[in-house]
Write a protein that binds this DNA or RNA. Structure first.
Lengths: 187, 187
DNA sequence: CAAGATTATTGATCAAAGGCAAAAAATCAG
DNA sequence: CTGATTTTTTGCCTTTGATCAATAATCTTG
């Protein structure tokens, strides 16, 4: 594992002592392709930091699964609303390929937030980051045509194409898989 | 003004000292109907707490204005992404009726976050709350039909009907104003 | 209160994307 | 390698809601 310093570098610089505290509570986990990391219906008690691999968050609508987001190396992943509210998660998360994830447990992280204001600030930054990404996605999905949404995804996250199915990508882009297939045919 | 204790009661109980600090930096403002409170293009340097009245956040797409959210008594309002990122806001906010708003300025609030962990926690809670609401709206708007979206709004925020125009509500519900008008005719 | 302006409703038509079904291609297992 | 399964593509038809246009209702203001 790289140092936490490197890992979180893009978020903020943590004092050594805070890093040590975080390191004392983290656990590393390897996920196999297809492995479920967050299970719908359970209270999500962890935040993950992806060191390697691509993950997908999704939920079930009728019997189809709908992709909420893709998360990759260098990003945090959780069912934030469940983690925050302590209610059962309506979303699941799975590994789309072999993944390496650093986990922080709610019960261990929360005391640290109270004890160490640098860690609290890190958490604040994660929340802020998540908020902004969610807002961008909302606007993105609301005000672009099907084709524009696909093109933008190609632009920003091209690596997803090879690892997720047409159906998984289509539901993320809020269109049917047939529509996505047709769009791809025109490009 | 009621005490901050009462105001923030639904969020959390603050120690008296933290309340005093917050009270020392807040300012109260009365907004006239139609008055702009956040201006698109400017960096949003404040968070408001609505004591009275109904407000609307929106932005411009082509030349039409699109409602992002309605906020009412007991809720916080800001252009969170601008407040967080210190980038110009793409959204504006206006009063739909006479409003009473408590304002907290960025430059005064941020030092307090560092100085006082209870205030930092309040801010964390506001972020969390905003996040969850945004997520709910995303799912809400993504997976319901036009009619279902309208019915749900009626259910959860019926007071909006009398204070916002059909066009303002329609853009919030992501449909044309004609469609909303037709839906209303069938109920 | 009346004329003008704004906002809401209704009608007619159109386009984007969805649903279903079948064919084609890719992937997997033995 | 080959048959079976899954995934993707394509064709056809339908549906939802958008757009354009005209009329009706409501609000403003002199």
């Amino acid at each position: 594992m790289e140092s936490l310093q490197q890992l979180f570098g893009r978020f903020l610089a943590l004092p050594q002592e805070s890093q040590n505290k975080l390191e004392s509570i983290l656990t590393e986990k390897t996920l196999q392709k297809g492995e479920l990391w967050i299970q719908e219906g359970e209270i999500c008690d962890k935040i993950g930091f992806i060191e390697r691999g691509l993950m997908r968050s999704f939920y079930y609508k009728d019997k189809k699964d709908i992709t909420i987001s893709f998360s990759t190396k260098g990003e945090f992943i959780s069912s934030m609303s469940s983690f925050i509210s302590r209610m059962p998660s309506y979303e699941s998360a799975e590994a789309l390929e072999i993944c390496q994830v650093i986990e922080f447990q709610y019960d261990q992280l929360m005391p640290l937030l109270i004890e160490d204001r640098h860690v609290a600030y890190l958490y604040q930054r994660i929340l802020e980051q998540n908020y902004i990404e969610l807002e961008e996605h909302l606007i993105f999905s609301k005000f672009k045509s099907a084709k524009e949404r696909y093109l933008e995804l190609m632009e920003t996250k091209p690596y997803i194409i090879h690892k997720a199915s047409v159906g998984q990508i289509a539901s993320y882009l809020d269109m049917s898989l047939e529509t996505l297939s047709r769009i791809r045919a025109t490009i």
